[in-house]
Simulated assay, not measured.
Amino acid sequence: KDSSNNESAKNAEHAVMIELVKGVLTTPTVTSSIYGFDGGILKTKQLVTGSTQRTIRFDFFSGETFTNAEVQVTIEGMTFNTNDYYSISGWTHLTSDQISNNGHTLTFTGSNRGVSDIAFELHDKLMPAPGTYLIKFKADADGPGTARSFSEEQFITLIILPPA
């Protein structure tokens, strides 16, 4: 339901799956209501194709307490590298073992930070061709194979504009 209490149509894209793993009933990690660019406020950001952005900052606030959590972030149109950062309790460079999917996916595990802001900062990125590109988040609050499973995927949008 939206803020006006209107209920959207039910469809497979928004279905919640509950699965039985090793005899334990798992439920999805609670999604966050605060995430996005510039401190979790904006869900879209417009940039110009061919420009190089010194930094692009976006945040994901956990929807519930994290204990040995796994977080995955996938980015379209650009790639992560070891010059980029994330922050849970201080800014840390990404490591090559956290980056997969030809640089498009970041996965990190072991977050025990509780309900908090996980910030990301991309550095010196060349903006791709004009279009709409998604940055997607999902989290498993207690790590793989335990009581929680991955949350519903949430996303923010980069809109890349042609030069003026």
Results as ranks from 00 to 15, higher is better:
Asp84Tyr: 06
Phe80Gln: 07
Val73Arg: 05
Ser96Met: 02
Gly90Asp: 11
Asn81Tyr: 04
Asn102Arg: 12
Ile88Ala: 13
Val71Phe: 11
Leu94Cys: 06
Ile99Tyr: 05
Asp84Glu: 07
Asp84Arg: 06
Leu94Lys: 01
Glu76Pro: 01
Asn102Phe: 09
Gly77Ile: 09
Gln72Ala: 10
Ser100Lys: 13
Thr74Gly: 01
Asn68Thr: 15
Ala69Gly: 14
His93Ile: 00
Ser87Ile: 00
Gly103His: 11
Val71Ser: 12
Ala69Thr: 12
Thr92Tyr: 02
Phe80Cys: 07
Gly90Tyr: 09
Ile88Phe: 07
Asn102Gln: 13
Gly90Ile: 09
Ser89Ile: 03
Thr74Trp: 04
Asn68Cys: 00
Ile88Asp: 12
Gln72Glu: 15
Tyr85Phe: 15
Glu70Ala: 13
Ile99Gln: 05
Ala69Ile: 12
Leu94Ser: 02
Thr82Tyr: 04
Val71Arg: 08
Asn101His: 09
Gly103Glu: 08
Ile99Thr: 07
Asn101Val: 03
Thr79Glu: 13
Gly77Trp: 11
Asp84Pro: 02
Glu70Tyr: 00
Ser96Pro: 01
Thr92Gly: 00
His93Pro: 01
Thr95Ala: 06
Trp91Tyr: 09
Asn81Gly: 14
Val71Ala: 12
Met78Ala: 12
Asp97Glu: 08
Thr95Ile: 01
Asn68Leu: 14
Leu94Thr: 02
Ser100Pro: 04
Thr79Val: 15
Ser100Glu: 10
Gln98Asn: 02
